[in-house]
């Protein structure tokens, strides 16, 4: 397989075929669904986009382990973690959702996908997708991950390949 990401004249170009773009767009939808905050659906869109809706509301660690991995506790102490979450979780959700929108915008342009100013957002998005799939698959350090019959596992491995390719471009290898 050739490298999906390459640097061309200052921009990073992603060579992704139609199926690859469709899979990534599907993951965009999935992350949006996981991170959309039902408790702030009454708030105006601008406030939600800026992560200002729901700030200051009491929040527990998310019960879904996948969401809890995307929005982890910042303190080991439960009380401090809750206090920090109360003030910052809405902002973190909004930030991650803004990454998705950058990726979606890039994927919806005609190929090849040219990433001009959203490389960090792409990286963070790919990392979040891997966290979602890896947490669902219950990946451990000792897992020997090879492509097989499980489509989720194959997608997880494909995302590692994409992420590695992008990191290689950015580190300059």
């Amino acid at each position: 397989m050739s490298r999906p990401f390459k640097r061309k004249k200052g921009a990073v170009v992603a060579k992704l075929d139609g199926n690859e773009r469709r899979v990534l767009l599907h993951l965009c939808d999935e992350i949006v669904e996981l991170l959309s905050d039902d408790s702030t659906s009454e708030a105006p869109q601008w406030a939600r986009d800026l992560g200002l809706a729901g700030v200051g509301e009491q929040r527990e660690t998310p019960t879904d382990p996948v969401v809890a991995r995307l929005l982890p506790d910042a303190y080991e102490d439960a009380e401090q973690a809750g206090e920090f979450r109360r003030l910052t979780e809405a902002g973190l959700r909004a930030k991650k959702l803004s990454h998705v929108e950058v990726v979606r915008r890039d994927l919806e342009q005609d190929p090849p996908v040219v990433i001009t100013d959203g490389v960090q957002q792409w990286l963070a998005f790919l990392a979040d997708c891997r966290l979602v799939l890896g947490t669902r698959l219950g990946v451990t350090e000792d897992d020997l991950m090879w492509p097989g019959l499980n489509p989720q596992k194959n997608l997880y491995l494909y995302l590692a390949f994409l992420q590695q390719s992008l990191v290689d471009v950015l580190i300059g290898e």
Binding site: L70, D73, L92
Partner: peptide, 18 residues
Amino acid sequence: MERDATAMHEYGLWATVQ
């Protein structure tokens, strides 16, 4: 440190402050 931990979470790394 809270700013750093939040930035790590934005990147998908798990960080804590103490």
